[in-house]
Computed example of a mutant assay.
Amino acid sequence: MRGGMVEGVHHGSVVVLAADGSTLFAAGDPDAVMYPRSTAKPLQAAAMARLGLRLPPAGFAIAAASHSGEGIHLDAARAILAAHGLTPEALRTPEDYPFDPVERDEWVAAGRVPGRLAHNCSGKHAAMLATCRKYGWTEHDYLDPGHPLQLAIATSVEDLTGAPIPHVSVDGCGAPLFAMTLRGLATALSRIATAPSGTPEALVAHGIRAHPELVGGSRRDVTALMRAVPGLIAKDGFESVQVAALPDGTAVAIKIADGADRARPPVLAAALALSGVDSAALEPFAGTDGPDGLRVAGALARQPAGAA
């Protein structure tokens, strides 16, 4: 909205699951198969924790991150590698500049070249290599879908989502990308958010809650959101995918069909409001046009279940 007029329209799907897994709200088709992109990282981190990977909270946070490439992010990923006798050269992430535009500009101005550690998925890849080192698995091919690591991750993803993986592709970082539904994604993050203390899933949830700055970055809405809503764990992904879960297990999953990221935060704010989150905490995420944006987000709550 701008000045009381509709300026742009985005279509998509969203589901809000209650703590018991029942549907509080759904719009579009939350049971359609889609690519979760980086919202799957907490699931992948939980799978590695199930395999016995043990990291400090910052390690699990960066393993579940699409980080901005700030110094704290590179240090956290580097720490995982160093603790397992590895170096950044072992990473199979594409060479890249930091994801954050401010950090990227500073790199370019300083004459620094793209690197594997700077890629926003380097924390996940560092954890993958650490898991391979723990089991003595080959490391040069850890991204192969048939590698023991990736087969084990796929098994955990199916268990957490409660459904078979219908399709496997390749994500932008080169890792296997497991398709799933929004309902499955929300179910999985709910299970991670409510995992009993001491379980592998709880290690991941604790890391994300303790270090939201590592999961995104100092200028990222996913980090600001977790700071604004106590106990929330959340993950954003390319092509406008988002998942979030409250401590009681209430969970939200969103996919904007055209991949426009500007539509993601307002829909997330509306969905979290339906989950009982204080609207005052959500207002900064509800839109970019002041009260108009907030009204657009609030319109989600007035839609009948199943509407797009």
Results as ranks from 00 to 15, higher is better:
Asp159Ser: 15
Ala234Tyr: 09
His167Ile: 01
Ala152His: 01
Ser66Cys: 13
Ala83His: 03
Ala224Asp: 15
Pro101Lys: 03
Asp100Gln: 05
Ala280Arg: 13
Gly8His: 14
Trp107Asp: 08
Met1Phe: 10
Pro230Lys: 08
Thr194Lys: 11
Asp221Val: 14
Ile80Thr: 13
Asp31Trp: 06
Val108Tyr: 05
Arg112Cys: 05
Asn120Lys: 07
Ser218Glu: 15
Ala244His: 05
Met48Val: 12
His67Thr: 13
Asp144Ala: 13
Gly306Ala: 04
Pro98Arg: 06
Asp236His: 07
Leu294Ala: 14
Ile233Ser: 01
Pro57Asn: 11
Gly123Tyr: 09
Gly298Tyr: 08
Arg262Trp: 03
Glu283Lys: 12
Leu232Gln: 00
Glu139Gln: 15
Pro30Met: 10
Met5Phe: 14
Leu143Cys: 11
Ala205Tyr: 12
Ala205Glu: 12
Gly59Asn: 05
Asp141Val: 08
Ala257Arg: 06
Ala301Phe: 02
Ala163Ser: 15
Ala305Asn: 11
Arg209Lys: 08
Leu189Gly: 01
Val222Gly: 03
Phe60Val: 11
Ala228Cys: 12
Val15Gly: 04
Glu139His: 14
Pro30Trp: 06
Asp75Cys: 08
Leu151Gly: 01
Ala210Ser: 14
His119Gln: 15
Asp105Ile: 04
Leu282Arg: 01
Ala61Phe: 03
Ile233Phe: 04
Ala202Ile: 06
Tyr142Arg: 03
Ala65Cys: 09
Lys255Thr: 02
Gly198Asp: 09
Ser13Asp: 12
Arg50His: 07
Ala257Pro: 00
Tyr142Phe: 14
Thr187Tyr: 02
Ala281Gly: 00
Gly136Phe: 07
Lys255Met: 06
Ala79Gly: 04
Ala301Pro: 02
Gly287Met: 07
Thr87Phe: 08
Pro304Arg: 12
Ser279Cys: 06
Cys121Glu: 07
Ile153Gln: 00
Gly249Tyr: 00
Pro176Met: 03
Ala58Val: 07
Gly69Tyr: 01
Gly8Ala: 15
Leu143Met: 07
Gly287Arg: 09
Arg227Glu: 14
Ala271Glu: 06
Ala299Val: 00
Ala46Gly: 06
Val243Phe: 06
Ala202Arg: 13
Leu91His: 01
Phe60Leu: 10
Met180Gly: 13
Phe178Trp: 12
Pro101Leu: 04
Pro304Asn: 10
Gln44Arg: 12
Arg264Leu: 15
Ala126Pro: 01
Leu282Trp: 03
Pro57Tyr: 10
Pro265Trp: 09
Leu151Tyr: 01
Ala270Ser: 10
Arg50Val: 06
Asp258Met: 09
Val14Leu: 14
Lys134Met: 15
Val229His: 07
Gly231Pro: 11
Ser68Lys: 01
Lys235Met: 09
Asp141Ile: 08
Ala175Asn: 08
Ala83Pro: 05
Ala307Val: 09
Asp289Leu: 03
Ile72Thr: 06
Pro265Leu: 06
Gly174Met: 09
Leu268Ile: 01
Gln303Ser: 07
Leu160Gln: 05
Pro98Lys: 05
Glu89Ala: 15
Ile165Phe: 01
Ile233Tyr: 01
